[in-house]
């Protein structure tokens, strides 16, 4: 991944407008947050392959960034995004990494479902 370029990400977000797309949305402070890192509890939430459609998509802020996706009946939101990648499958991967390089938040969009197990993928 590389540091977010607002222009590139905004352009890519717009390409996903007004069509059914697959969403991966996640935030985590690590499974061992309470056990090893002195935080009150481990917190994580994720959706993999939520099927969504949105009519407005905007990146805002200045490192870290926020993304808001406006749907007909609601919103999708992520804060703390630092890095992005458009991978070989045309998927937009956005992530927020902490100072140690650990993933804290991720928002990803794809026109095809994200794999559930890479063991099902070809050649693995």
């Amino acid at each position: 991944m590389q540091p977010i370029s607002v222009d590139v990400v905004q352009t890519k977000l717009s390409e996903f407008l007004n069509q059914e797309v697959y969403l991966h949305l996640e935030t985590t402070n690590g499974a061992y947050a309470a056990h090893r890192f002195g935080q009150p509890m481990a917190v994580c939430a994720y959706i993999r392959n939520g099927k969504v459609q949105f009519e407005r998509a905007t990146i805002a802020g200045d490192k870290p960034y926020r993304v808001g996706l406006k749907m007909a009946d609601g919103w999708i939101y992520a804060q703390g995004l630092t890095d992005f990648e458009v991978d070989a499958k045309g998927r937009l991967l956005l992530a927020g990494h902490d100072e140690e390089g650990r993933l804290a938040v991720s928002l990803q969009l794809s026109r095809t479902p994200f794999p559930m197990s890479v063991l099902d993928e070809e050649g693995v």
């Binding site: 996640e26 890095d83 990494h97």
Partner: peptide, 8 residues
């Protein structure tokens, strides 16, 4: 560290 993997 430095980051070389992503979620996918």
């Amino acid at each position: 560290k430095p980051t070389f993997a992503n979620r996918e």
